[in-house]
Amino acid sequence: MVTMDITGNTVFIPGATSGIGLGLALRLHAAGNTVIIGGRRAELLESIAAEHPGIHTVVIDTTDPSSIASAASSVLASHPSLNVLVAMAGIMLPENLRDPAFLEVAERTVVTNLLGPIRLVAAFEPALERQPSAAIITVTSGLAYVPLPATPTYSATKAAIHSFSDAMRVQLADTSVQVIELAPPATQTTLMNLDQNPHALPLDDFLDEVMQLLASQPDAEQILVERVKNQRFAEAEGRYASVLAAQSGRAN
């Protein structure tokens, strides 16, 4: 099986203008990879590129199929050696299922978190398969395994991406494309104001552990930091109900 090296790759990370995406982009660049980040706001991308020389950028809206197609064409033309896609696209908003307004949030979450990564895979997989060694890294969440009741659609989309990743890995098993699922726990980013939550994992600590795991486990199917294992293995270890109850308490 072809496995991912931690350096010498050409990596595209859409949705990488802040938080985990930007942090991962900077760590991968520092490790000796060519990194292209994507986002909707050209001025923000320009600012990041100016602050971090060597980071390449492209405008992309992962909710828009035509924008994905345009960005894919641009990235593959300028970086024909592209061999790693981090299919990262996500919004996380609270929903009250008794409020009819929740439906708009739910639909937008599905388009962004589920259709976005699937469309990215569709746009880039053929080119990745032509590389001698390639990887698709999907980004799920500990909430893919035990939902946060306050964010039901977010949790459901992450569970769907986990399932999609497993199925994609089987379908691509005889190709050069490795499929890796990255499942973060609650991490201190602006998502749901987690940067203000002292119980969330500090972003730098998360990134330290992710880079160590990528380096030490090149054939990994999942990248699981220690903090996420409580959720990841809750059902297998008979703790699902208690973890769900704890997450229900945090949701109130």
Rank of each mutant, 00 (worst) to 15 (best):
V2C: 04
S73I: 05
A69Q: 02
E125W: 00
T3E: 15
G21R: 03
R232M: 11
T190G: 08
T153A: 00
A77K: 07
R27P: 02
T7Y: 12
D204S: 06
M168A: 09
S133D: 12
A144L: 07
V58W: 10
R250M: 15
S67L: 12
Q222Y: 11
M88R: 07
S74M: 05
N252C: 03
Q196M: 09
L44G: 05
M1R: 14
G23V: 02
A156W: 02
V225M: 10
I48Y: 00
I223L: 14
P202R: 14
G249R: 09
E95R: 03
A241W: 08
L93A: 12
L103I: 07
G142R: 06
P14C: 14
P152G: 15
I55L: 13
L201H: 03
Q247P: 01
S78R: 13
A42N: 06
A30K: 07
G15A: 10
T63N: 13
A200L: 05
R27L: 12
A200M: 11
L207D: 01
A144W: 10
T17P: 02
P80A: 15
S67K: 06
S165P: 01
Y240E: 09
M92I: 05
V11Q: 10
G54D: 12
I60W: 05
L93F: 06
T3D: 14
T10C: 08
S70Q: 13
V59P: 01
V177A: 10
V146E: 12
T57C: 09
T62G: 07
L214T: 06
H29P: 01
E235A: 07
A183Y: 05
N197Q: 08
F233R: 05
A245E: 15
V111P: 00
A106N: 10
A160M: 05
D174M: 06
S66F: 08
V170D: 13
E209I: 15
S70R: 13
Q231F: 09
P149K: 06
A251K: 11
R239K: 12
T138I: 03
L28F: 00
V58D: 13
T10N: 07
V179R: 00
R41I: 11
H29D: 09
E237T: 04
L28G: 03
R40I: 06
A122K: 01
A49S: 06
F233L: 07
T138A: 03
Q171A: 11
H199K: 11
D5G: 09
S248A: 14
L93S: 06
I55E: 01
N96W: 08
R227L: 12
G38S: 09
V179D: 12
D99L: 01
R108H: 12
P218S: 15
V59N: 07
I180D: 13
Y145A: 10
L26N: 05
V105I: 14
V58N: 07
T62A: 12
P185H: 15
N230K: 11
E209Q: 14
H199G: 02
A134R: 04
P218T: 15
N9A: 14
E129L: 03
S66R: 11
A77H: 09
L213Q: 14
P184G: 14
I161L: 11
P117D: 15
S74L: 05
A101D: 12
A134S: 08
G54L: 11
V243G: 10
T187L: 10
S216W: 03
R119C: 02
P126T: 13
